[in-house]
């Protein structure tokens, strides 16, 4: 057999494991060092992904921020290629629009190819959405299209966070909203998220969301509501 004649038929890139971060950057996130801590935590998570020497899986990250303006802060790209710039807090909490932007990105097969592993979508907020029709957009995101099949997590920061809304964002009835009382613990959630993502990427079937993750009992001093 001429060994090289079959080389050109196999995809040269590893399959993607996309991670979408939907991050609240409303004015309230600028208080009590929450935004500073969020920036540090996201940066650390991307660094962790970058350092992992994965061959068969490419962890890709996209960041969508929502204040009054909804912005694709980071286009979906391999973690190793991301040059992270800090987010700043400003404005209202237009989460519904952010869900629409994320929905469209996940539907786009040029960004999330057909052979991508099940994407992870993370919602982080310290408040409640206040744009029009956010509830319809949440229902659309969680019940239709490809986003409805994603592995979805949420982090509520502080007592003003709308935990019941964030519970509706999750993809499994046994999953719980992760809750941190203050900014100092945000990094714990992101370390937990980094760890579960890397575990998935190294598992025999990276599409599989491991059930133990749903019922993990306070693995890193996070509160689950």
């Amino acid at each position: 057999m001429e060994n090289k004649e079959f080389d050109g038929f196999v995809m040269p890139e590893a399959r993607k494991l996309p991670v979408f971060l939907l991050l609240d950057v409303s004015t309230s996130m600028g208080r009590d060092s929450k935004m500073d801590e969020l920036n540090r935590s996201v940066r650390e998570m991307i660094d962790t992904f970058r350092k992992e020497q994965l061959v068969q899986v490419e962890i890709c990250v996209s960041i969508i921020t929502f204040g009054t303006e909804v912005k694709v802060h980071t286009e979906l790209a391999p973690a190793k290629d991301i040059n992270y710039t800090d987010m700043t807090a400003k404005g209202m909490t237009y989460m519904g629009r952010a869900l629409d932007v994320a929905y469209d990105m996940i539907e786009d097969r040029t960004k999330v190819p057909k052979n991508a592993y099940r994407p992870i979508v993370v919602l982080v907020s310290d408040g409640a959405p206040n744009d029009d029709h956010w509830e319809d957009k949440l229902i659309k995101f969680t019940t239709t299209g490809r986003s409805s099949k994603c592995d979805r997590w949420s982090l509520a920061i502080g007592k003003d966070a709308d935990v019941s809304m964030m519970k509706r964002f999750l993809d499994h009835p046994e999953k719980e909203v992760c809750f941190v009382e203050d900014a100092a613990n945000i990094h714990k959630f992101f370390r937990f998220l980094s760890s579960t993502t890397i575990q998935r990427s190294k598992s025999a079937n990276p599409n599989q969301v491991i059930n133990e993750f749903f019922t993990m009992q306070d693995p890193i001093d996070l509160d689950f509501n």
């Binding site: 057999m1 060994n3 079959f6 080389d7 196999v10 995809m11 040269p12 890139e13 590893a14 399959r15 061959v55 068969q56 899986v57 990276p206």
Partner: peptide, 16 residues
């Protein structure tokens, strides 16, 4: 053996 060789020499990035 030929099929085995084709499958064994799969590009490692997609041989998981």
């Amino acid at each position: 053996n030929f099929i085995y060789q084709v499958l064994s020499k799969w590009n490692p990035v997609n041989a998981g």
